[in-house]
Structures are given as C-alpha cells and as structure tokens.
C-alpha cells in the first residue's frame, strides 16, 4: 500500500506526515499527532464525535482520508482556545451545564463554532439543525443548545 507525503496545517501549525492511503484524518490526528481531543464514536459518520474543521467547514474526520488533507487547514478542539482563553462557546457550554461525560463535547464545540462563524445569530432551530449530527447520550441536549444560544448573544 502506498504512502503519501502530505503537508497541512493543524491548529495553526504546519505539519508534514507520511500517511498510508487508508489512514483516516481521525486516525492521523489521534495516533500520529496525539491530538486525542477528537473522538472516535462510530467510524461511520453517524455520531459526530470526530468532527473537526477542514478548511473552515466541519467534517466527520472518520470519513476523510488523511491524504485528502494535503494542503488543508484543520482545526480540532485543541485549537479552539487561544492563549489560555477559551473560545466563547467553550465557556458558555460550561456555564450552561452542557458537559457531562464530555465525550461528545469536542465534536459539539466544533459544530457550534462552525455554525456561529457562518451564522452569528442562529435561531434555536438553526442550532438544533447544526447539531443534529452530534449525538450526545448524557445531557439531553437542552443545556448544550442553551450554551450555544448564549455564545451567540455575547
């Protein structure tokens, strides 16, 4: 199986890697780069725990090949905070009580960040729809939705 040399940007840092064809972006992040904030919940695009930003748009990193990321810009949950300062939505989800086990949280934050970037004033319905691909088994979503609403307010 062929390996490919790729260059890409993760959370603002330029990275180079030699990846086999069948390596997913999720696996590369978790295993090669030890960016384990991005989670594997199903490996088939259904749970959203693996959601990252690829060129500014959220993708299920379990369904993207690492080799497809050549030249791409990737942002993971580890890249949301800057200089120890949490991103607004990280803080509002904490304050709203939208974190329980925390396994869905990274993917939810990425989806929420992407939503707020493309639509700074989302309606409740917009938020629900933007998060429909992020399953959470603990919280019942209510506090997560409220957290995103709050992030849009500030």
């Amino acid at each position: 199986m062929a390996f490919h040399r790729i260059t890409f940007n993760v959370n603002g840092e330029l990275e180079q890697a030699d990846v086999p064809s069948n390596m997913t972006l999720l696996k590369m992040l978790r295993e090669n780069l030890a960016l384990t904030g991005t989670k594997n919940g199903c490996a088939e695009g259904e749970c959203g725990a693996c959601t990252v930003l690829m060129n500014g748009e959220p993708v299920n990193s379990c369904l993207v090949l690492a080799v497809e990321c050549d030249g791409a810009e990737i942002v993971t949950v580890e890249g949301l905070a800057h200089d120890e300062r949490l991103d607004a939505v990280q803080q509002t989800i904490i304050d709203a009580g939208g974190v329980q086990c925390g396994f869905c949280t990274p993917g939810i934050l990425i989806s929420a960040r992407a939503l707020l970037d493309r639509n700074p004033q989302p309606s409740e319905e917009d938020i629900r729809i933007a998060l429909v691909g992020n399953l959470c088994r603990c919280t019942g979503y209510v506090r997560i939705i409220q957290g995103v609403q709050e992030a849009a307010r500030i």
């Binding site: 978790r30 030890a34 960016l35 384990t36 904030g37 991005t38 989670k39 594997n40 993971t76 949950v77 580890e78 949301l80 905070a81 949490l86 990280q90 803080q91 989800i93 904490i94 304050d95 009580g97 974190v99 925390g102 396994f103 949280t105 990274p106 934050l109």
Partner: peptide, 20 residues
C-alpha cells in the same frame, strides 16, 4: 461548576483510548 468541565471542553480530558 464541574471540576472536569475545562479539561473536557479543551480536549485535554483523557479517556482510555486517548492514552498513548
């Protein structure tokens, strides 16, 4: 506020599969 909230929103919280 939950003790573990911050590490869970930053991706720092370690789950078993995260251990290298």
């Amino acid at each position: 506020i939950r003790l573990d909230a911050r590490e869970k929103v930053t991706g720092a919280a370690l789950f078993a599969d995260d251990i290298q």
